[in-house]
């Protein structure tokens, strides 16, 4: 469904991605784990068109997308929920969801999906007229995911959905991620610092180190791998 071939990205003089290749197949949850600065977020930003690769190719559903505008990538059903939630703070919950559905014209479909995400996150329904900036961190993360779902993606990219959230909220968020994949067939590319949780949720994983893919395998095998355990999973 999504394929990166030898992708290089530079920020000025900094060589952020040094030949990353990875693949996401339909129906999968794939996770990218790795330390800060390994190039995880850069990879997502490059896929969604915010950054341009200096070399290499990105293909989505068969076609190259590495020269396509971010808005056209969203239109093709690939949505990126950025790190730090990035809710529009002075728009209401309702308006934030509307912005997720910005490119859609099917009014009744939008209405239906809005009701659907309100069912999925009842707290958002309660807060629908509240400004996004007044929500708690967990509520904002739910809104960020809900907003992306409003664009009707077939592939959803989530960047650090657990960042700065209490463990119980993180649990809830990951249950939702698993459910979106299981019940609605949404393919998910998940970037996560919390490697143990990510590997429990995902089918396959990639381990990034300083802009390269260090290893890739089934999530369960990575979770059992000595090297991964030592470097990313702590002692547990």
């Amino acid at each position: 469904m999504l394929e990166l071939k030898n992708v290089h990205v530079h920020y000025g003089k900094i060589h952020a991605l040094k030949g990353v290749s990875l693949e996401v197949r339909e129906g999968e949850i794939v996770t990218i784990i790795g330390a800060n600065g390994a190039g995880k977020s850069t990879t997502l930003k490059t896929i969604s068109g915010l950054l341009r690769p200096t070399e290499g190719e990105i293909r989505y559903e068969g076609g190259p997308i590495h020269l396509v505008q971010p808005s056209d990538i969203v239109a093709r059903g690939l949505c990126h929920t950025p790190e730090g939630r990035r809710i529009f703070p002075e728009l209401t919950v309702h308006e934030n969801l509307d912005m997720g559905a910005y490119l859609r014209k099917d009014k009744s479909g939008i209405e239906k999906d809005r009701e659907h995400v309100y069912e999925m996150f009842p707290i958002l329904a309660e807060r629908r007229e509240q400004h996004g900036g007044t929500l708690s961190g967990g509520e904002q993360q739910m809104l960020a995911i809900a907003r992306s779902i409003m664009s009707k993606p077939r592939l959803l990219m989530l960047d650090e959905p657990s960042l700065g959230l209490a463990p119980i909220i993180v649990q809830q968020i990951f249950e939702v991620i698993a459910r979106l994949n299981r019940e609605e067939g949404l393919t998910i590319l998940l970037v996560e610092q919390n490697a143990s949780l990510a590997l429990k949720t995902a089918h396959r994983g990639y381990v990034f180190e300083t802009g390269t893919v260090l290893m890739s395998d089934e999530a369960s095998s990575l979770a059992a791998n000595e090297q991964v355990r030592a470097a990313y999973l702590g002692s547990d």
């Binding site: 971010p70 969203v74 949505c79 950025p82 728009l91 912005m99 910005y102």
Partner: peptide
């Protein structure tokens, strides 16, 4: 209004 708050995220929403 969304663009005045966060252009990058606005772009990620397809704006």
């Amino acid at each position: 209004r969304a663009c005045s708050m966060d252009q990058e995220t606005a772009a990620l929403m397809g704006i």
